[in-house]
Each structure stands twice: as structure tokens, then as C-alpha cells.
């Protein structure tokens, strides 16, 4: 590394260590920029792909009140996608490129959305567990070192906690309902529990990105720390619902002050990451289809905007 670069890199790390926020125009190491683009775009894609399993129940929501609430929730997620694409764009990449990476499989999104939503209770479980797990991660990210990302997270976190409460309330209603409804809730927890734990990513030993991201203060807690935090917060909530967490090894460890829990099926985890989940192919096809079928709309909007501008200029010229 030449001395000038080295000085810049040291200065940069000093700012990080002093908990200063890095802003778009500031100098940053290439790898920092790349890591952020990868992480922010992955997050943005997750918000957008995440609309699909919930969108799957919008037309079947069991009451008009629930329909409105679910629509509003999914709309929030689309909004999160927008802010996050915006935050990624401050790093010098545009949305079209990011979408291209998503559609070609180069960019990832949260694997949780490769699981199917099969019952109304899943709208509860997704809000409670999936938004709940996302919050653990995102609350940490409100203090992340990159300014635009941290600020996007502050805005997003408020809405995510609302989603989580809303999801929990759906399940609470089911659990106070009939036996069939309670069964529906239990079945949903059974299917979503383990994939939710997987949302925190590989274990710390297996994680390739964690240490560097911690040093740059992009991440401030490890995957395993966040996962433990999630389990500790969520198990009492399951107890309150009267539902059983599908983990025979789950038990309170007095000495640690945490819940012990069973081993994640890492073979399943990696398999879904590689594209072999129950809905990977279908989710991507749905996104690509929307994008491709929208191409003529985007082209027309652009063509119209150009025509309009030209007409305005002509009018101005005529007056002058």
C-alpha cells in the first residue's frame, strides 16, 4: 500500500474507532464500500422479496381490518426497500444495477422468504418472528458506521416494531380462539421457528464477514450474540401464547442467564442459501416477471417525461 493510501486508511479507521459516522462523500476503503453495497442491497432486496409471502395472503385476509393492516404492513416493507436502495445509491451504484444482480442471482436476500406462507397464522408468525428477528439486527444497525444506512435504520426500526406487535396480536387472537385456530398457530410456529433462527446467518465460527464488519463497526454484534438475544426475547412470548417452541433442547440456563437451544440444521441453511429452498425459484421468477412486465411502463414513463420537457422548452423558445 502506498503511504498516502495507508495514511487515509489509518485516518478512516481512527474515525470509525471514535464512532464518527462515515458520509457518502468521505474517503472510504474500497472493501468497506463493497461490503456496504453488498449488505445494504441484500437488505433492500429482502424487504422487496419479503413482500411476496405476505402478499400471498392479502387477498385472503380473514377480516377487512386485517386486510387493511396487512396491506399497510407490506406497503411499509416496500418503503423500506426504497430507502435502502436509496442508501445503497449513495455508494455509487444505481437501482437498476442492483436489481440486475438480484435477478441474476449474484445478490442474495434473506433466505427466510424462500419459505412458503401456508395459512393465515403465517401472517402472525412472520410479523412476530421474522420482523422480530430483523429488529434485533436492525436496532444494532441504527448505530452502524455508515451514516445513510444508520439513518435509514432509525426510520425503519420504528415500523418494524409495529409490525412485530401486529404479528403477535394476530397469533394472540388465534390462541384465544378455537382449537382449530390454536392448531393453526402452533403449526405456523413449527414451520417458522428454525428458519427465523437461521436469519441471523452462520454461526460465528463459520461466518466469513463478521470480523471485518465488526472492525468497521458496520456490525456491532456477532450473529450468535444476536441469535441468543432473539431466543431470549421470544421464548417467553411463545409461553404467553401457550405455544410450544419446536425445540426439545430448549431450556433456561440459570448459570448463563440465557436460554440454551438446539443445534440449527446447517445443512438446510446452506442448502437454502444455495438456492434449494422450497420457494427460491418461484420467488425469483415472481420478481423477474414483475420487472420484465413492468419494462414497457418504465420506458413509457421515461419517454413521456422527455416529450414533456421538450414541449416545455419549445414553448419557452416560442415565447422568447
Amino acid at each position: 500500500m502506498d503511504p498516502k493510501q495507508k495514511a487515509l486508511a489509518e485516518q478512516f479507521q481512527a474515525r470509525i474507532d471514535a464512532d464518527e459516522k462515515i458520509e457518502p462523500k468521505d474517503w472510504m476503503p474500497d472493501a468497506y464500500r463493497k461490503t456496504l453495497i453488498r449488505q445494504i442491497s441484500q437488505h433492500a432486496h429482502s424487504e422487496v422479496v419479503g413482500m411476496l409471502p405476505e402478499g400471498n395472503w392479502v387477498t385472503r385476509a380473514p377480516s377487512l381490518r386485517r386486510k387493511v393492516a396487512l396491506l399497510a404492513k407490506i406497503q411499509d416493507e416496500a418503503g423500506h426497500g426504497l430507502y435502502l436502495y436509496g442508501a445503497a445509491e449513495t455508494l455509487g451504484i444505481d437501482r437498476e444495477e442492483l436489481l440486475e444482480e438480484l435477478h441474476t442471482g449474484k445478490a442474495k436476500y434473506s433466505s427466510i422468504f424462500n419459505y412458503p406462507s401456508l395459512s393465515w397464522a403465517d401472517m402472525g408468525a412472520i410479523g412476530w418472528l421474522v420482523d422480530g428477528a430483523a429488529i434485533m439486527n436492525q436496532v444494532m444497525l441504527t448505530r452502524t458506521s455508515y451514516g445513510p444506512y444508520a439513518r435509514a435504520m432509525v426510520r425503519i426500526c420504528k415500523e418494524e416494531s409495529f409490525h412485530q406487535r401486529q404479528g403477535y396480536e394476530i397469533l394472540l387472537t388465534l390462541c384465544r380462539g378455537t382449537e382449530a385456530q390454536k392448531q393453526m398457530a402452533q403449526d405456523s410456529l413449527n414451520r417458522w421457528w428454525w428458519p427465523s433462527l437461521m436469519m441471523f446467518g452462520p454461526s460465528d465460527e463459520a461466518s466469513t464477514h463478521t470480523q471485518q464488519s465488526m472492525d468497521w463497526r458496520i456490525k456491532r454484534k456477532t450473529n450468535d450474540e444476536l441469535r441468543q438475544q432473539f431466543v431470549d426475547a421470544t421464548v417467553p412470548q411463545a409461553d404467553f401464547l401457550g405455544l410450544t417452541v419446536p425445540d426439545p433442547d430448549l431450556k433456561w440456563n440459570e448459570a448463563r442467564g440465557h436460554y440454551d437451544f438446539g443445534e440449527i440444521d446447517w445443512a438446510e441453511f446452506w442448502n437454502v442459501v444455495k438456492g434449494n429452498g422450497p420457494c427460491n425459484r418461484q420467488r425469483m421468477q415472481a420478481r423477474i416477471k414483475a420487472h420484465e412486465e413492468g419494462a414497457w411502463v418504465r420506458e413509457a414513463a421515461m419517454a413521456y417525461a422527455e416529450k414533456r420537457q421538450k414541449r416545455q422548452e419549445e414553448r419557452k423558445a416560442a415565447v422568447a
Binding site: 413482500m51 402478499g55 416496500a78 426504497l82
Partner: peptide, 14 residues
């Protein structure tokens, strides 16, 4: 609401 998640542009989906 059938469009939700399938709009031609994210802004129009919203």
C-alpha cells in the same frame, strides 16, 4: 391489492 408485491415499479407498487 392483487398487485401488492408485483407492481411494475416499486414506487407504483406503493
Amino acid at each position: 391489492s392483487e398487485w401488492c408485491g408485483h407492481g411494475p415499479i416499486l414506487e407504483q407498487d406503493i
